[in-house]
Design a protein around this nucleic acid. Sequence first.
DNA 1: AAATCAGTTGCAAACGATTTGCAATTAAAT
DNA 2: ATTTAATTGCAAATCGTTTGCAACTGATTT
Lengths: 153, 153
Amino acid sequence: MKKTCAHKHAEKKQELSSLTGRLRREAHKITSPRAAILEILRHHAHPLTNKEIFAELPKGECDLATIYRAMQLMEELGMVKRFDFGDGSARFKLVGEGDESHHHHLICTRCAEVVEIGECFPEEIERRIARANGFTGVTHRLEFFGLCPGCQK
Amino acid sequence: MKKTCAHKHAEKKQELSSLTGRLRREAHKITSPRAAILEILRHHAHPLTNKEIFAELPKGECDLATIYRAMQLMEELGMVKRFDFGDGSARFKLVGEGDESHHHHLICTRCAEVVEIGECFPEEIERRIARANGFTGVTHRLEFFGLCPGCQK
DNA sequence: AAATCAGTTGCAAACGATTTGCAATTAAAT
DNA sequence: ATTTAATTGCAAATCGTTTGCAACTGATTT
Ligand SMILES: [Mn+2]
Ligand SMILES: [Mn+2]
Ligand SMILES: [Zn+2]
Ligand SMILES: [Zn+2]
């Protein structure tokens, strides 16, 4: 595992108030565990596993199950995006209010370093595939895997 | 779930002898469970879960754990390809001897119908991403999701 | 501020996919 | 037929994730 974050992100941390506001708006409570989780997510640029979030939390601050429930809720509210890197555990990242930013990742198969990939293949390809097969609402999941510079030995 | 197979594949079932040969070649035994598993894979065009394979097997023919072990072994030998559709269980499909056939799938999020997608985005994109980040041996995972014609109601 | 009530939490048990330890079994070579 | 390493069935163990439930707490109403 790398110590440094090779992730270059626009450093626009969302206002905590904007986040809590979204919860409140939907008749949900701003509890201590949720506030703590949001604080952690706000400070991390790339997707975290629930276990990672748990590890960053002060010891007795919040139960693991609560984190699972929080991420589930916030995913439904569109506050976080779920990632599946195929390693068995889901990862989550905060999503800005209007911030759609469709993007993908390049993941090192040895150290799990994650690099943000802004680029995507031409939309035309997806449209053609959808039409050719009569599917609607077609989306895609795309991740790249390889050996990062540090792991090539 | 659909009854009919919407999958159009080249119907070139591999010779059983070619498959068993590959096992033997690596100092592995052709056991009754393995033969039965291969028979099933040979007759299915798209990826099956271990549980699905198990279900098609005559009752006491083979243990589930044995199927897991067989798929693991055959994946290492390059005889099957593993798919991750993101629904929690791995799927496997036979791979021909020389048959590399890189391709993707379009999966219905309601009925799980799977359509083979031969096309892929321009290799140039992947090369550029690899180079730009200093990664080597870069591959990708790409699946499409949407509503199939039958599920659009 | 005290009462109220729906939404939350901690904890432990439940889950589903996958893996593993181990003694009994079996394919393949001698 | 004998020998031996590979393989299997079965049960228990893992691991990420979910859930039931009684105790708790944030937000709202008196
Ligand atoms: Mn990222
Ligand atoms: Mn297929
Ligand atoms: Zn994309
Ligand atoms: Zn591709």
